[in-house]
């Protein structure tokens, strides 16, 4: 129950942060900062895939409403929500996850988080720019935008966790 409330509040906060802060920043070179993949990444591991996809779709669509992109964010959010179980299975630690683990940088370590969330972001950003551009002739431009944008978004998501997430007490 606590979990549901926590994730609902986070949903609203991430939506506002993405739509009103990070979508408004113009860094140049076509870079766009993405923070809402972090929300999708941090949803509980035990969550039903259907619900996961629905929530991600809703989040993406909410962001679309405020940034005149009409389904672009929804589509990219959906892609990573669909891919998340496979990705996590691929990078699962040898003895599995403890029940109730949240995949934050604290519980999973820098290296693991960097790898897995980096891949996650790469898939998201790549898909986002490809659908937005939708032309093979601009392939290298899309790749450039992705390569420039992903490290920045990754850094931002790590910083957000350092700033706003409580460090769990060591047992």
């Amino acid at each position: 129950m606590i979990d549901i409330i926590k994730h609902s509040i986070r949903f609203v906060l991430f939506l506002i942060a993405q739509a009103f802060i990070f979508n408004q920043l113009e860094i140049g070179l076509g870079i766009q900062l993405m923070v809402y993949p972090l929300y999708i990444f941090l949803l509980p591991l035990e969550m039903n895939v259907f619900l996961l996809m629905l929530v991600s779709f809703g989040l993406g669509f909410g962001i679309d409403l405020f940034s005149n992109t009409y389904g672009l964010h929804a589509s990219s959010a959906l892609i990573i929500a669909y891919g998340r179980p496979y990705l996590i299975k691929l990078f699962e630690p040898r003895d599995g996850f403890d029940p109730g683990t949240e995949l934050t940088i604290y519980s999973m370590g820098y290296a693991w988080f960097g790898y897995v969330f980096g891949t996650f972001l790469l898939a998201h950003t790549m898909w986002f720019f490809f659908i937005e551009q939708f032309k093979w002739s601009e392939f290298w431009y899309v790749v450039l935008k992705t390569v420039l944008g992903v490290p920045l978004s990754l850094l931002l998501c790590v910083l957000l966790q350092f700033l706003f997430f409580k460090k769990p007490i060591k047992r």
Binding site: L54, G60, G71, S75
Partner: peptide, 15 residues
């Protein structure tokens, strides 16, 4: 996958 394709269809059609 079908559920995914369905939602993806909605998103891309709107876009």
């Amino acid at each position: 996958f079908l559920f995914f394709a369905f939602l993806q269809g909605i998103a891309l059609t709107t876009y």
